[in-house]
């Protein structure tokens, strides 16, 4: 596994960002860039498909927290799905899941975010 990539698409008002690679400083910054660009365009609802990001570090988590804080300022929300158990555990421990939601599938996520 090397490099970090994102693929972005929208489902109605929801922006879905599929990541692949290590969600660290580099990966987190890429995700935040995409989010802030979409936020500037008026988007408030974001979903991260983390199926291909099996490892996350605390720097990646802190960047996600920043994104959540910025979204809170505009009454926006962030959600995730397809999390590896270790990633979900990290999100739980780092308190991320108090301010954002983990879904089990894209279908559930789209329903939960609308």
């Amino acid at each position: 596994m090397s490099d970090f990539n994102t693929e972005t698409r929208t489902e109605g008002d929801i922006v879905i960002i599929k990541t692949s690679g290590y969600l660290n400083n580099v990966g987190g910054e890429q995700v935040s860039e995409v989010c802030y660009k979409e936020m500037d365009a008026g988007k408030k609802l974001f979903l991260l498909d983390l199926e291909d990001s099996k490892v996350v570090n605390s720097i990646g988590v802190s960047i996600l927290i920043e994104i959540i804080e910025k979204l809170q300022d505009v009454d926006g929300r962030l959600g995730y799905y397809n999390l590896a158990p270790i990633v979900e555990k990290t999100f739980n421990i780092m308190g991320l899941t108090k301010y954002s939601t983990v879904f089990q599938s894209e279908e559930e996520a789209l329903e939960g975010m609308s």
Partner: peptide, 12 residues
């Protein structure tokens, strides 16, 4: 290895 990289904030 994956766990170690993640927990120690290593890049690789």
């Amino acid at each position: 290895l994956w766990r170690s990289v993640g927990i120690l904030n290593a890049s690789k």
